[in-house]
Design a protein around this nucleic acid. Structure first.
Lengths: 344, 344
DNA sequence: TTTAAAAACTAAAACGTTTTAGTATATTGC
DNA sequence: GCAATATACTAAAACGTTTTAGTTTTTAAA
């Protein structure tokens, strides 16, 4: 009952010609290989007639190319990464690539496992939002000449291709905006993970408060607690300890969520006085009361640049191109929450 | 410079044995095929020593299995689908499968293209959030005996495997909750797309208002306008036309976003009086003011059931199992927005 | 001591392509 | 009229596995 897929061999025998000829025609090498126009057309017609589609597995085996890219992020269900994923997906499919997505939860063990899993699958390249401690694995990939682009995070000690945003600049800009709007006791709530983008964000904050001799209120929540949704207790304690804080910059979208929850539940009246800026925008922030100011990372550009880069690397696998370091600018989407509202 | 990956052939020649023997050992058939314990151990040791990993492309070519599943959704950057994706990912990897994600934007053309693309890649199965008009393509898949599970939406006229939630029941429950809380002029804002889950949600609404002889205020926004973020004009006009509406049930999360925006910008005072329930929960709804009541679909169960089903289908590809229709229950997460608040 | 069965192992085909290294025929230049 | 070249096409190897259908050796049975 089950019809077998038609193969090149079938076509060849049906037309009484060789497999080679069919393959040449299908790969647009008819002219180069001196296949006559008539035969070429005949093959093309027949191929269309029987609706032949090449078996890509066989192609991959022979050519070593799988036309599959891996896009690894911390957590695909985080809106920021999901948006990036969609952009990458669209760009990749346009170029004939498919994308395997996966989440590493910022764990080195998972990241390494996943990378090895995919190497076995002969993927053509990696776009990686890396966990913090996988330098050796990354070096391996580079040694094996496997196309790799780091996204969002990089290793200062490693010379790789990467696409990041200027995180230090972004937090600096956010704090400046707070200052311009009359906030003086500006807190920064972040996680303690050693991720490059987090280090940079923190340094931007420090630079800004130092520059204006403002107090430094930094809360670094242990990463493991943060992903287990335990941030709230830390934030609550922090706010209790520092009642004079009049503005908060949250370093990630999930910290913002936790922070808003604490404010809603424990410090209800605070929401109308405190300055709030979050990292990573969200449609819903527009309609929040107050609407929430956000550092918006240029997701479209991030996706575009990293796809561009990875495709270049794939195309020039033989040549050792110099690594590219692409740093994009974030923008501040100013809304109500970063301005002084009702009388304090 | 580039070290070639070690293959079975290398191992065989290094150990002076046949490729067959190595393969048997690697596939746990040593005993069955009478390979001696000593040799088996020798092979195993050597395999470990040289860190051999099988080439999965070659395996796929030979066995016809790719260990890849496709998870197709409307838009992977929609939080509801992103959450599902993460769950599916985790379940699949646990079972040795990788997942290709893709977005069809609810367009038949895209869906069909993608399906054909993946068939060529020999994927082992499809978990499909289907676009509305691809019955023939689906029939083809079934005829070709390719494992397929529909998720979230189904075709009433087609006998397939599917995992859905009881949408009609969910909207009915939401409207009942409104009624119990004293709302009388309850609107339902949806899209006009012919998707089974939307039809069901609408019928749940109609049943509820009919049962209690309440007025039917339904707004069906053209799907094309909705995805182009043009819902707001429709909603605004609708609210203007029906000033007596005192509660709204939004049929999807993106409609809720649009609705909240209209209320925030055009009907600012309304937010404290109007009843709101949304489909698909979101962390941020907890901290909204008012916090927003949501119909929460059982994403974990949806993912689990569909993975379970697809794996069963893959395992029993030869036997024609009877199709399973799994219908799960949603729950209503009651928050402030569905109760009467400040005096009307 | 022969014979059947079990144990231990393997050669080679197969999966569906691409590509190298051809062969055979036709054409051209002198 | 003959070499050189161009044209038209193809056989077979290769990619790295799995699996069928063996072969050879050892053991057990009679």
């Amino acid at each position: 009952m089950k019809k077998k897929r038609v193969s090149i061999k079938d076509i060849a025998s049906d037309l009484n010609i060789s497999v080679t000829t069919v393959s040449f025609v299908l790969n647009d090498k008819a002219e180069e290989k001196h296949i006559s126009k008539e035969l070429t057309q005949k093959v093309l017609d027949y191929v269309k007639k029987v609706n032949y589609k090449p078996n890509q597995i066989a192609q991959s085996l022979r050519t070593g190319e799988s036309k599959i890219l891996v896009f690894m992020v911390e957590d695909i269900s985080n809106l920021f990464f999901a948006k990036l994923a969609r952009l990458i997906e669209d760009l990749a499919y346009k170029k004939g690539y498919k994308v395997l997505f996966c989440s590493n939860d910022n764990e080195d063990k998972k990241t390494i496992e996943l990378i090895n899993l995919f190497k076995v699958r002969q993927v053509d390249g990696f776009i990686l939002v890396s966990s913090p401690g996988i330098q050796t694995t990354i070096n391996q990939l580079i040694e094996e000449n496997i196309p790799l682009v780091l996204l969002d995070r990089y290793f200062p000690t490693l010379d790789t291709n990467y696409v990041i945003t200027d995180n230090s600049d972004a937090t600096f800009m956010a704090i400046m905006h707070f200052i311009e709007n009359g906030f003086k006791n500006i807190a920064y709530i972040t996680i303690d993970a050693t991720q490059s983008q987090m280090d940079d964000r923190l340094s931007g904050y420090k630079n800004a408060v130092n520059k204006y001799s403002l107090p430094n209120y930094t809360l670094e929540i242990p990463f493991n607690e943060a992903i287990r949704d335990n941030s709230e207790v830390y934030i609550e304690e922090f706010l209790k300890k520092h009642p004079d804080i009049d503005a908060i910059l949250f370093a990630t979208n999930y910290l913002t969520q936790a922070g808003l929850k604490v404010i809603k539940e424990q410090y209800t009246d605070l929401i109308d006085r405190i300055g709030i800026i979050t990292f990573d925008d969200n449609e819903l922030f527009k309609t929040y009361s107050p609407s929430i100011t956000a550092v918006a990372q240029p997701t479209t550009e991030m996706a575009e640049k990293s796809m561009e880069l990875i495709l270049q690397l794939i195309k020039n696998k033989e040549k050792a191109l110099p690594n590219k370091h692409i740093v994009l600018k974030s923008s501040l989407v100013i809304r109500e929450s970063s301005k002084k509202r009702s009388q304090s």
